[in-house]
């Protein structure tokens, strides 16, 4: 809807947009000024560090907060979970897209219904089970939980995408004597790139930022991922907000860099993700 606007309306619109943009950037700005000031510097957070830039907070975030280790842990958990969610999701979607029996339709509906389960609603039984399995404070424990919570949406996406592909190529492969496995790995898998980008971005961002379950499952600082690590550093350093800000900024950097380079994929993926 492009209607011509008068001058006052245009100014009003620009002012409104400017206000929102400033509002969205302010938390980052305030964190930056706070992170660059010494603890004894009680000047307003609105002011940049006038006495010179202080980098001690970043050092403290790295040495006391162990932020680099947490970033590495997040990278491992996110990387492995994302690969598994994509691969297992694509596999599971294949029969759901290509063999439409009553049973498979029911299986598809069940998987879709799993999306509705809020993570905290199963905290008690899940944590109890993970303790019995000795999976608390392990990579595999958190990865298993991340895979199980992100897999339903992934299967949904892959199923929808495969249904939109013409079946004739797969049939030709079958006629040529390819087994179901060969058809899946050699014919279907290579054409799933667009939907894989979507699933990978949604799963990657969500796993990287996950806090609710990770904060219970990962309590050992050596294995903690970013979000629980920041939260615990923050509550431990409540009198030293400079260090907490520095840790936050360090943790957000990898996502920012990825967003900067892959912005188009991010937004496209998120739109697709929301239109499920």
């Amino acid at each position: 809807m492009i209607t011509k606007l008068g001058r006052p309306a245009k100014i009003l619109l620009a002012a409104g947009l400017l206000a929102i943009v400033v509002l969205q950037l302010l938390p980052f700005y305030v964190s930056i000024t706070t992170s660059l000031k010494e603890r004894t510097d009680l000047s307003s957070t609105w002011l940049p560090p006038l006495d010179g830039v202080f980098l001690g907070n970043f050092m403290s975030a790295i040495t006391d907060g162990n932020i680099l280790q947490s970033i590495l842990n997040s990278a491992i958990v996110t990387g492995v979970s994302t690969i598994l969610v994509c691969f297992l999701g694509a596999m599971a979607a294949y029969p759901l897209a290509r063999r439409l029996t009553t049973m498979n339709k029911a299986v598809g509906a069940l998987i879709l219904a799993l999306i509705m389960i809020p993570p905290l609603s199963i905290l008690v039984p899940l944590y109890t089970m993970l303790t019995q399995m000795q999976a608390v404070n392990t990579y595999w424990g958190i990865i298993a939980v991340m895979v199980s919570t992100h897999l339903p949406l992934s299967i949904f996406f892959y199923t929808a995408f495969m249904r939109s592909l013409p079946i004739s190529v797969e049939e030709a492969a079958t006629v040529d004597g390819a087994s179901a496995f060969q058809t899946f790995f050699l014919v279907v898998l290579p054409v799933l790139k667009p939907v894989t980008a979507t699933v990978a971005i949604l799963t990657g961002v969500s796993t990287w930022n996950e806090y609710a379950l990770s904060s219970f499952i990962l309590t050992d600082p050596a294995i903690r991922t970013i979000a629980p690590s920041i939260a615990s550093f923050f509550s431990a350093q409540s009198s030293n907000l400079g260090a907490a800000s520095a840790a936050s900024l360090l943790a957000v950097l990898p996502v920012l860099i990825a967003y900067l380079f892959l912005q188009r994929y991010f937004i496209k993926g998120m739109v697709a993700g929301s239109e499920k």
Binding site: P27, F28, T45, V205, Y211, A227, F234, V252
Partner: peptide, 13 residues
Amino acid sequence: LVSPVIMGTMYYL
């Protein structure tokens, strides 16, 4: 794209 934990710390300031 930012973890709500991090947004929360920033808004706490």
